[in-house]
Write a protein that binds this DNA or RNA. Structure first.
Ligand SMILES: [Zn+2]
Ligand SMILES: [Zn+2]
Lengths: 414, 414
DNA sequence: TAATGGGTGCACT
DNA sequence: AAGTGCACCCATT
């Protein structure tokens, strides 16, 4: 069983190496194929609490993704599956006659979160797909939405004091126009201990204390999230993917540098404090000195603008409202070779990225939240699945966490 | 008041003549503009019963449009407006890789029905827009849907015996593979008496007896619905609009002849009789000899394949599943000139027609079911609104009709 | 709720 | 012809 799971993982670099060379000679056709493959990296959210029904999933995810400036909505749901995506921005861009072609139901952002209930495991699997965005991530704008206010109200009803304090702090920063640095999800994926422990159900290495006082959202600005590069000499040159759309867009929208997406507060008027009147800010910054790097090196929540061979600062006030984002994707290599790549991806504008993803869907591996379901297919080998230890961004309620630990280990190991 | 309404109507030919010449010299740009203008003819359904709430509208419309092979669903609704469209066909065409570009939420068929509540008139106005279809009209397939079965069950619960009998008859024909000729809505629009009577609220000229025994769905196959052509010598040559898409489609999908859309039964197996077990077919065809031409000449429900200068029969078994449809549109001219045109339109394939309509949305008149709300804008002048007396296709329940007549005439004439 | 992908009705905003 | 959030579906394997 363990060997089989390792085999499925080790098939990743094989497929990568088989097709990597061909795709590096990017024709317009396999260019799209490359983007599709490389953006389909799946990131498992691992400690998932027990949900009595699917409607408990969205608030739980909001606790994780709101601080990153990601406002999720349900794209599709049924009793056994919920797919989330970014809320469609109601921008005045749509009123621009030049953008009439991007008509209704434009699939602007490819970011997806898929939650699927596994009957066999009796748990919900949550996977982040297409971890890239075609828009800015603005927590300050999120705080003005009704959904966020309802979310906050729900936190108060649940007496989730830690989450309330965390979000109050974020709102406070936003209201003061302080730069809110919320790193994109990215992870170092050794895929070692976890896989053997749980057979593709990636258990966390770290067991954060339930009474931890550290502020989970304070990130060290002076270090970067890096994947372990055990064999850097084997690294291929960084892939720079551009589409034909580039020429039609403002060239300033593209940068050649690795950049971690940040959210900047734009409005600092009194309205931003509207819902904070009843909040006690007395001890707002008393407990935020600890840096959450105690997760045993699995992941660093930090930002470093200087990462790639050529670097520059992203303009803080981009002219293009939907300026392109560069994100760093850590590609999971096999356990055997252990040579992760750093992919420098460029997000094409708006629908283009969706079209590219869709055009190559037949070639791209299908996402699978339970990758060992069909052992003969070896599907997981081409998934490039990443294990994202998100716990530094989220503090569970105590009851949620105890429910999580109550899952029968026999079910997990089966 | 009467003068003002007439003025708004007479502005139609003015705009037609002003732009008609330019558009006849069709460049690819104004070609789309022409299609948009000419397909935006609005058809008022006039005697509209009183609806306690919006959910009563759809069953009422289904009684009208099911027999025509049109399966409507709600596209959008709120308390004051309901927009209907054709049900999206769940065709395997979408699985064809060549049609992947027509992705999700493709607005295949432009046909729309808009119901909007007029606060001033305290009634629901119902308007048919884009009276053209990008698909076949198949009553036999409709009878197999759950929605139709629910519709029939609702009729039984309402004891609407006339409608039950009518639909039983249609189902019976379909089950026997009999050709089911259901004419597309089209109408002769004199726009004379009605307008003066009700100021853009087109009252019916005919007052069909509530106890009429004639079968409303029996159409004379040997005569055609013709718009009065008082000045045929002024007629422009028939416009034949084609898009660039033509070359990529099967040429057999296009015909050069005016054709009234018909629905043909394809399956005549026992399953088609599934819901007819408890139906008494004893007098099925006893009352269908009368031709419903007693509506004082306002409209003929009849089909004539020979209408245009060059005519041929539409193939009963088209090879292309979504073969193009030619429909005859009677364009409303002014009262003064009274020179209606016959437009021979070609329906482009699938989304193409939608794109053409959309591209010219800014030039096209906006739909407004209460066209006199803003008298200064003279919107109705460019609507080319048609008055469709649909009563030959529908028998009201007695209570519905009495409710209709209970509307305060003062409100109507205001 | 086999797992997993997607279509689309339709009412909320 | 509001755009879209959400859920009831269906399809394939
Ligand atoms: Zn996004
Ligand atoms: Zn249609």
């Amino acid at each position: 069983m363990t060997a089989k799971s390792i085999k499925s993982i080790t098939s990743v670099p094989i497929s990568m190496s088989k097709t990597g060379k061909m795709r590096l000679t990017a024709s317009p056709d396999n260019l799209a194929s490359m983007m599709s493959r490389d953006q389909n990296k799946l990131i498992h959210l691992d400690p998932v609490p027990f949900f009595k029904d699917r409607h408990e999933i969205k608030p739980w995810l909001q606790k994780i993704f709101y601080p990153q400036g990601i406002d999720i909505v349900i794209e599709r749901s049924d009793s056994g599956k919920v797919t989330f995506k970014c809320r469609s921005v109601r921008s005045n861009m749509r009123l621009n006659p030049e953008f009439k072609s991007t008509s209704s139901r434009s699939h602007a952002c490819p970011f997806r979160i898929r939650a699927a209930f596994s009957v066999r495991l009796q748990k919900w699997n949550v996977v982040v797909m297409n971890n890239i965005h075609a828009h800015e991530l603005r927590f300050d704008l999120i705080t003005k939405t009704d959904d966020y206010k309802k979310f906050k109200e729900t936190l108060r009803q649940k007496r989730d004091e830690k989450a309330i304090k965390t979000f109050d702090e974020l709102e406070y920063k936003a209201s003061l126009n302080l730069p809110l640095v919320t790193p994109i999800i990215s992870c170092d994926c050794g895929l070692t201990k976890e896989i053997e422990a749980s057979n593709n159900i990636f258990l966390p290495i770290s067991n954060p204390s339930l009474t931890s006082k550290k502020s989970v959202l304070k990130a060290n600005k002076n270090s970067v999230s890096k994947a372990k590069s055990k064999q850097p000499e084997n690294s291929k040159p960084g892939l720079r993917l551009k589409t034909q759309l580039d020429s039609t867009l403002d060239a300033t929208g593209f940068l050649d540098d690795i950049k971690v997406q940040s959210a900047f507060v734009s409005t600092g008027n009194a309205e931003s404090l509207m819902d904070l009147n009843e909040i006690d800010f007395t001890n707002m910054f008393n407990n935020n000195s600890a840096i959450p790097n105690s997760n045993q090196g699995l992941m660093d929540f930090s930002v470093d603008p200087i990462t790639g061979p050529s670097s520059s600062l992203f303009p803080s006030t981009p002219i293009e409202p939907f300026s392109q984002n560069n994100v760093t994707l850590a590609i999971s290599e096999s356990i055997a070779s252990s040579s992760p790549n750093f992919m420098e991806m460029k997000a094409p504008y708006e629908d283009e990225i969706m079209d590219l993803l869709k055009d190559n869907k037949s070639n791209a591996p299908t996402s699978d939240t339970d990758i060992n379901t069909d052992l003969g297919k070896d599907i997981s080998g081409s998934l490039g699945m990443l294990n994202y230890n998100y716990e530094a961004l989220l503090q569970f309620n105590d009851n949620e966490f105890s429910e999580l630990k109550s899952i029968d280990p026999a079910l997990i190991s089966k």
